[in-house]
Design a protein around this nucleic acid. Structure first.
Lengths: 217, 217
DNA sequence: TGGGGAAATCTTGCATGCAATTTTAATTAA
DNA sequence: TTAATTAAAATTGCATGCAAGATTTCCCCA
């Protein structure tokens, strides 16, 4: 089993990334090469290659001769990351308004409608899942893998900080209403309106996160 | 000499990147690990780590068990890269309009004026250099290292394809006029206008590149 | 003469080991 | 008790070697 064409270093990079994102390795903790090698049953060589790959994504911090630590995101950096993701998502929406195929536009419309039903049923879990699909549609719809991969990388990195954003009352309906503006602009082919609407939407999501974050620990 | 706190793999990554960008290693050519190790006087281990780092930036293509090749950018990919860079630059301008400090705004103003003189003198070389400074001001001015690093990385990657864009007649004055619109919007704190103006500017630069590229080989 | 297949060669992937640097601990002096 | 110094331990950086997979070469057959 296990060998699907990927090299061990690649699988390690992905597994370590998962472990970091799901909290197994806490921010700031040292990623000892021997420890990782033992944990994943390999030698240090592929571990080192994986670490270098992860360092390039910003997930870990690789200090020469001093080892790797899980990147600790300060409050400031988190702000910067959220802003960056927002801008990228807005850009995706902008390009989607210009580049989406009729089929993609139709999919967007259908998803928006079905999410409306989820709002009516107040199904938070299903809405959260659909919300991911919603944003994914723009990643593919912008037809620019360079931008979409940047956005996906950021979204992935911010995932641990985005949980439970729809818990607050009325957030579901509000999110859906904001989506409607974005969808309308994209379907109308109005690039700048799509950009502005998506930016407003994700900024509000960020605000919701802020509220969460400022709850006394 | 030689040891300035950097690890060999890091220096290798930077040296190989330079060699790729200056054309020493042509797109599509194989990057043999033994060859690289011999060329830079190390063993294969740091070479492999450097290659993994470069693969993360998209500069090389690392195919499992099949070695690394210098990423060959097709015409389509180049288009995608230019669009991505344009969008990021526009985003930088947008954020700059919101976040630049008075000092940064002043610097922008001063540079814009001095570039006007270069246009009058038709000093292409100096204008080209100043143009880099101009864009760099927005990278720092957006106050978002995540976005600016993405933009810088793209600009670096596209550098080999951007040469001589000011050769065409009248391009200098036109560039400066476009800059004026961007600067005006940023100084006025008009985010969406700054975004639109920068987007228009870089799109035109891209068009100039297109003209160059379509010259029969 | 051209195509298919097997063997030889080459290249990558990974483990291991050693040297160098950093980190930790211990010991001593103030 | 605390700070400084030094020695020990641990950890990283890198070279080397071998095995597995890919590539090339060569030969045979149609």
């Amino acid at each position: 089993m296990s060998d699907d064409g990927q090299t061990r270093a690649e699988k390690l990079a992905s597994e370590i990334a998962d472990a970091i994102l799901d909290g197994t390795f806490e921010p700031g903790s040292r990623l000892d090469e021997h420890m990782l090698a033992a944990r994943y049953g390999t030698s240090r060589t592929p571990v080192r290659e994986a670490l270098r790959q992860l360092a390039a994504t910003g997930l870990i911090d690789l200090r020469p001769r001093r080892g790797a630590i899980v990147a600790l995101v300060t409050s400031d950096q988190l702000e910067v990351l959220f802003v960056a993701m927002g801008e990228l998502e807005a850009t995706c929406a902008r390009l989607s308004a210009l580049s989406m195929t009729p089929i993609e536009r139709r999919r967007l419309e259908v998803l928006q409608d079905s999410m409306g039903e989820l709002v009516a049923q107040n199904d938070v879990a299903a809405y959260t899942a659909a919300n991911t699909s919603f944003h994914t549609l723009f990643y593919t719809g912008c037809h620019n893998p360079v931008i979409s991969e940047m956005a996906i990388g950021l979204r992935r990195r911010l995932a641990p900080f985005r949980q439970a954003q729809f818990r607050a009352v009325g957030r579901l309906a509000r999110s859906h209403a904001e989506h409607a503006v974005v969808v309308g602009a994209v379907l109308a082919g109005n690039a700048s309106a799509a950009h502005a609407a998506m930016l407003r939407h994700v900024s509000l999501v960020e605000d919701a996160f802020e509220e969460l974050r400022n709850v006394p620990a």
